[in-house]
Design a protein around this nucleic acid. Sequence first.
DNA 1: TTTTGTAATTTGATGCAACAAAAAAGATCG
DNA 2: CGATCTTTTTTGTTGCATCAAATTACAAAA
Lengths: 228, 228
Amino acid sequence: MSERSLARVATPIPRQSNLGELSYERLKEIIIAGAFPPNEKLTVRSVSAALGVSTTPARDAINRLISEGALAYVAPKTVVVPSLTVEALDEITATRLAIEGLAAERSVLSVTPGDVAGLAQMQARIIAGLDQGNYREVLKINREFHFTIYRMSGWPRLVAIIETMWLRVGPSFNALYPAFAMNRQGVANHLAAIDGLNAKDGAKVRAAIENDIRDGYVRMKAMIESQN
Amino acid sequence: MSERSLARVATPIPRQSNLGELSYERLKEIIIAGAFPPNEKLTVRSVSAALGVSTTPARDAINRLISEGALAYVAPKTVVVPSLTVEALDEITATRLAIEGLAAERSVLSVTPGDVAGLAQMQARIIAGLDQGNYREVLKINREFHFTIYRMSGWPRLVAIIETMWLRVGPSFNALYPAFAMNRQGVANHLAAIDGLNAKDGAKVRAAIENDIRDGYVRMKAMIESQN
DNA sequence: TTTTGTAATTTGATGCAACAAAAAAGATCG
DNA sequence: CGATCTTTTTTGTTGCATCAAATTACAAAA
C-alpha cells in the first residue's frame, strides 16, 4: 500500500504513454542513431506512414523535437535534422561544460558504493566493446555512463537539459561512427571520474567529465572540418 | 537579389506564425504574468475557448509549454502551472548561475557603445519605475535588461535555454509582485554589469549577474517559505 | 542551356467528430 | 453518517477531411 503510493509520488513526470509519446521516442532514437541524413526533409505524412500512426501523433512528435532543437525549420514547410556546424558545436560544447560540469560536481553528494560498482561494470563493458570493435555498443554504454552520473545530482530538470544537448550532437556523433567511438583517452577520463566518485571529490569528477567533453570536442571539430 | 538571399540565410529560425504559435505566445504571457493560479487545472477545451481557437492549436500550445517545463502533469489528465518548491528553486538557481553566468561573461565579446547606452536607458526606466511604484513595468524592463545582455553572447541556443529557466520562475516571480519587484540592491548589480560591459570585463559582468541571481534567490526563497 | 512563368502536387494547419479513459456526481448499502 | 459502487460528465487522444500555402515539375521563351 504505502509502497505503491510512494512509487507514484516518487515518479517525477507521470507523462502518460500515448501514441504521440511513443512516436516521439521512436523518432528520437532514429535521429540520435544518426540514421537520418542531415538536411533531408521530414514530413508529417512520411513520419506518419513510417511509424504506422496517423498524422496527429506524427505531428506531435515532430513539433516536440523541434522545440528541443533536434529538428529545425530551414524553410517555412521544411523540417530537417540540422547538420552540426563548428559554430553550433562551439556553443553547445561551452554549454555542456557548464551544465554537465555542474551535474558531475554534485554527483558526489548522493553517490553510493553500489553506484560506483555499476559504473565500473559499464566501464568494463566499454573496454570489451572497444576490444571487439563493437562501437555502436560502446557509444550506447558511454551515454549510459554519463547519465548515470548526471542523475546522481538529484536534479531532474538539469538532466533534462543535458539530454537536449546530447540530442543535438548525437546525430553527428553517431552518423560518423566508428571513427567517433571512444578511444583510450576517453577510458582514462571515465576512470578518473570513477576515482573521483570513490573519493567523493566533486572537483575531480567535474574535471574528468570536462576533459571527456573537451576530448570529444576536438575530434568532432576535426571531423566536421574534414567534411567540407 | 543577393540581399534577399542573404536575409533568408541570416534568419535564425523562420518559424511561421500560425495559430498554434500565437496560442503558445499568448498562453505563455498569461502564465509568466502570474495570472494563472498554480495547481489549478488547465484543460485543452478551456484554453481553446479562452483563446477563441479550436482544440488543435490549444493542445499544441499546452504540449509545448509542458515540454519547456512551464506546465506539468500532476496526474494523468491534469495539467497545471507547477508551484515553485524550495527544492526546484535551488536547482533552477544553480543552473541559472551556470548558464546565465556563461552568457554574461561572453557578452563583452560583441558589446558596442550603443548597446551600453541602451542598457543605461533601460536602467533609468527601472529606477523611474521604482520611484513611481510601477512594479509591473520594473519587472518587464528587468527581463529586457537581462536578455539584452544574454543575446550579446551570440549564442541563441543558450539564450533559449535561459528563457525556459525564466519561464519556470516567472509565474511565482510575478504572482508575488509587488513584494518582488527589484529593490535598490538589484539596481547596484545592474550598474556593476554596465560598468563591466564598458570595460569589456567579462568576469565583472558575470559576477554582477550572478549577484543579481543570488539576491533574487534569497528573496524568493524567503517568500516561498513564508507561504507555508 | 538557362531562365522565367505556370500548372500540378505536396504539405502543414485547422477544426471537428468519435472514442476510451478518467474524474465527478450521485445513489445505494452498511 | 460514512463508505462503496454505479452512472454521468468531462477530458485527452486520435484520425481524417478540408483548405491555403509552399514546393516541385514542367513548359515555353530567351
